[in-house]
Computed example of a mutant assay.
Amino acid sequence: MFAIEADNLHRTYRTSSGWIRRSRRTITAVDGVSFQVPPGELFGLLGPNGAGKTTTIKILNTLLLPTGGTARIHGLDVTRHTAEVRRRIGYVFGGDRGLYDRLSALDNLRYFAELYEVDPRVQRRRIEELLELVGLTGRQKERVEGYSRGMKQRLHIARGLLHDPDVIFLDEPTLGVDPVAARDLRAMIAELVRNGRTVLLTTHYMFEAEELCDRIGVITSGRMRALGTPGELKRHAQDRVVVEAEVYGVDEEQLDALRAERGVRGVTVDQRGMLQVIVVQCDIDGDAEPERFRSFVRQSLAHLKLGRVEVREPTLEDAYVGIVTGQEAAAPETTAVLS
């Protein structure tokens, strides 16, 4: 039996606009998403903003009803066995929502323990264990309003574990957290899996997904586009190299000229203040190809203020960008791609 199952999930909603002549339209947030997560796996759900990740998680969490398809937690249908499902899951959405700032961490956990109907005989021991797990022992009597973002994220995780759930949903748990706190949170998440929990994680940090996840699903426009291990997803980019160039003032016409070159698979731009980092993914055929592409990029941008230009191996992020921008025509045989 799978810990998490999504079978052809759909979710649409109606929206309207305009004042005098109101127009109505139907928006598809999730369009036929299917995947399974076995017990004890850390599954990553990746995708750009608006791709349908949070909607999918809310359906699995019983917070939204699907308009089509089915979802199950340990075999329990999320629409027909809502109460039982909620006892088996924990949802950590992070940020400033979901905690009471004027209460201490200890009082927050006591309050939520009552909501989760945690046995009063075990509440105290359970809360002490969780405070130790998330590294808040000694700070538990301080008001949450004085906590850093990283400390709040730790408290969110403790809150989500109060009722000892089998399945935990972590929605961008390290977003906006400083590097040291984020590293500690990743170690905590890995420890949850080692202790037998099933975790579904969403994140925008590719290095985090590669470090933590056993398998990854990439969702765009409400559809699952790729599914596999981090290594399998990186094989989307196994026959190419990446040329990375730092430049100032490149325009769309110059980028189109790069895209038109034979062998160029895709071109993206990362804006870092005034600096632009151009990433050119290139198909390779022969040992001389990488240097040819580097020379081509350097010459194409020579009239601009140009910084470093280097060739590197593709990363999971490069493969991910290729998937979500539609640059991938096919997937390796070991990776299941759904459309």
Rank of each mutant, 00 (worst) to 15 (best):
F2Y: 14
E5W: 00
L9Q: 02
R11M: 11
S16P: 00
G18F: 05
I20G: 12
R21I: 10
R24G: 11
R25D: 10
T26Y: 02
I27R: 11
T28D: 01
D31T: 08
F35P: 01
Q36G: 08
F43V: 09
G44C: 09
L46P: 03
A51C: 02
T54V: 08
T55L: 08
T55A: 09
T56W: 10
T56D: 01
I57R: 10
L63S: 11
L64V: 03
L64M: 12
L64G: 02
L65R: 15
P66W: 03
T70V: 05
A71P: 05
A71E: 02
G75T: 10
L76H: 11
L76K: 12
V78S: 03
V85H: 00
R87S: 07
R87N: 13
I89G: 04
G90H: 02
D96W: 10
G98T: 08
L99N: 03
R102K: 11
D107E: 15
D107C: 00
N108R: 05
N108E: 12
L109I: 09
A113K: 05
Y116C: 06
R124F: 03
I127D: 10
I127P: 06
I127A: 10
L130W: 08
E132C: 02
E132P: 00
L133E: 04
G135L: 08
G135R: 03
T137I: 10
R139I: 00
R139Q: 13
E145P: 00
E145T: 12
S148Y: 01
M151D: 02
H156M: 11
A158P: 00
A158S: 03
L161K: 05
L162W: 05
H163C: 11
D164T: 01
D166F: 01
F169N: 06
E172F: 13
L175I: 13
V180C: 00
A181W: 06
R186V: 03
M188H: 02
A190L: 13
A190S: 15
A190K: 14
A190H: 14
A190Y: 05
L192H: 04
L192E: 04
V193M: 05
V193C: 08
V193L: 05
N195V: 00
N195Y: 06
G196S: 09
T198P: 09
T202R: 07
H204P: 09
Y205A: 12
Y205Q: 14
E208K: 07
E208S: 07
A209L: 11
E210T: 11
L212C: 09
C213V: 00
D214M: 06
S221C: 05
S221L: 12
M224K: 05
R225F: 00
A226G: 10
P230I: 06
E232K: 00
R240E: 15
V241Q: 07
V241P: 03
V242N: 12
Y248F: 15
V250R: 01
E252L: 02
E253M: 07
L258G: 01
V269M: 12
V269C: 08
M274R: 14
V280S: 04
C282R: 04
P290L: 06
Q299K: 15
A302D: 15
H303Y: 03
H303S: 13
L304G: 07
K305T: 14
K305V: 08
L306S: 03
P314Y: 10
E317C: 06
E328N: 11
A331R: 09
P332Q: 12
T334S: 15
T335Y: 06
A336V: 15
A336R: 15
V337L: 13
L338Q: 13
